[in-house]
Nucleic acid binder design. Sequence first.
RNA 1: CGGGGCGUGGCCCAGUUGGUUCAAGGCGCCUGCUUUGGGAGCAGGAAAUCCCGAGUUCGAAUCUCGGCGCCCCGACCA
Length: 419
Amino acid sequence: MRLSTLFTKTLKEAPKDELSVNARLLMQAGFIDKLTAGVYTFLPLGLRVLKKIENIIREEMNKVGGQEILMPALTPKSIWETTGRWAAFDALFRLAGTDNKEYALGATHEEVVVPLAQKYVFSYKDLPLYIYQIQDKFRNEKRAKSGILRGREFIMKDLYSFHTDEADLDEYYKAMQKVYFKIFERCGLLDKTYLTFASGGSFSKYSHEFQTITPAGEDEIYICESCQIAVNKEIVGDLENKCPNCGNKNLKADKAIEVGNIFKLITKFSDPFGFSYVDEGGNKKPVIMGCFGLGLSRVLGTVAEVRHDDRGLVWPKEIAPFTVHLVTINSPDIEANNKIKLASEKIYRELQTGGIEVLFDDREGETSTGEKFADADLIGCPLRLVVSERTLEQDSVEVKNREEENKELVKISRVTHNI
RNA sequence: CGGGGCGUGGCCCAGUUGGUUCAAGGCGCCUGCUUUGGGAGCAGGAAAUCCCGAGUUCGAAUCUCGGCGCCCCGACCA
């Protein structure tokens, strides 16, 4: 991608009325645009990051047997009445269609997925089953806040698991915890993310949240440093301020943002829909369910909160919009400038041929060197390559690591190989 | 939903005891020249229903009332 043709531009100053770090940086760097409170457009740079997070999640879900589908976001009132949530779920966006038929915008999809699974699952032989989707969710939040951390429209992966019995659910639930940590590792959040005990609702003692430590977080969690797990403030009192794993009473409080939440639904949704199967003995039994949510847009915002410095974003390699930010520094000398242009075009092509994703700052004219560097810092790709008169004298490019700040000269002939 | 703050070209903002020194400055954009290793310089230019509506007044960005929007705190987050 050439910066000269990228339709978005960076802003010299962050939007004044945004206080949250993710909103300021992501808007300033041109990753997202706000349409209205809690509703954002993902611009080319932001979308690339989002797609990378999406693909990581997809890969990991598929590894544990997930089958991807895409359910509608527009859902009829009737299914919500079956579970009583038409009235009970106050963040539900409700709207009327023709003939005053009422709809809800999907805020979560148990009401859609259960009747769906019901059409195909009849026997223990059909279980277990894991189906998921990655989709926009709509919640009429009383107050949207913190940039993309709490929006009214947001992107979420929701996987629903169906089991013959609780033991099978428990096993999958455990496996899924590992998978979630794998996802957070790949997104660069592992070191700050804790498995957190949270309230379980009516059918299960606990649910588990994945909470990432950041001052921007809305939740307070109590961390047991020996077990590396945490307890949400909302239930820490119920546990007598002890670690549920080892009994440690010396828990450390911190602010965190919930990036994922997994539930044992048991029969909470199978019951109202009468979702059952026939076991080996010919007995009718309720299908046991689990639900596994993960907010992609929230992960993106959380990474911005956790991985930045005073100059801009610092993307983890696997989800960076581009691996390399290639900068040309023009020269007033026409002949020298042509050499620089030729060399950088060649490097650009070679990197791309080598499968490396490159953002090429090929802007000329009045775009100053300082501006190019400032943009590279702000956008935050892991590696910055500089081609200039100075580096060409040594037949090299300068390679700088965004995170570690170290620079080295690398021979042009070996650039693709060295990255 | 309660409380607070804010709303002036695309962005950051000055101006708000009402009055041809009020729509100023900076960024960005356009033209020309210059410049090129940390958001460059000079000259010229385009671009603003001063959030909206009503009112007070000879006169409103400025005062009054109503509304809308955004941010923050709180409550809420099945």
